[in-house]
Simulated scan of single mutants.
Amino acid sequence: MVTINDVRAVASPLPRAYEVLVRDRVKFRVGRIVFVALSRDETEMGFAYPKEAREALIASDPGKFHLPVESDMRFHWVRVWLAEIERDELEELVVDAWRMVVPKKVWREYLGA
């Protein structure tokens, strides 16, 4: 199980990423684009994910992954229960979400680091 502190440890050091508090919810952004958001009770995390692949991800483990709320369905977004993932999976989800919102040049520099 991971916590908000684990999410911070992965997301905060990513180039151009920063944390904000919006309506009592912790979110991580690059510019104005949110790539990770935590629920108010910090039990679930929404993250950027390709729309065309989200049904397959959810089908792969419906006890872990679920669709966003109806108002967020238009976005590239999926949610996960934090109690159901381990640190290595969290890192993969957060870094992949961040990769979706940064310029390719930043991603390439990150890989070279």
Rank of each mutant, 00 (worst) to 15 (best):
V78G: 04
K64M: 12
D72T: 07
V102M: 04
P13I: 03
R99Y: 04
P62R: 10
R108D: 15
D41P: 09
F28N: 01
F75K: 11
L21Y: 06
R25F: 04
P103M: 01
R8Y: 05
A48S: 09
V106Y: 05
A37S: 10
W81K: 09
N5Y: 07
A17E: 01
V69R: 13
E52V: 06
W81Y: 11
A48H: 06
G63E: 11
K105E: 15
D88E: 09
R29K: 15
R29T: 05
V2Q: 10
W98D: 02
R16P: 07
K105I: 10
V20Q: 13
R99H: 07
Y18M: 08
S60R: 11
E44K: 13
R54S: 07
D72Q: 14
R74H: 15
V36K: 02
I4C: 04
Y18Q: 09
V94P: 01
V102L: 04
R87T: 14
R40P: 08
V7I: 10
V20A: 14
K51V: 14
N5F: 07
W81G: 00
V22R: 13
A17L: 03
L67D: 08
A113R: 12
E44G: 14
I33G: 13
R99K: 14
F28A: 03
F75Q: 12
V7C: 09
R16D: 12
R74C: 09
Y110D: 01
H76V: 08
D24P: 04
I58C: 12
G63L: 08
R25T: 11
R25P: 02
E19A: 03
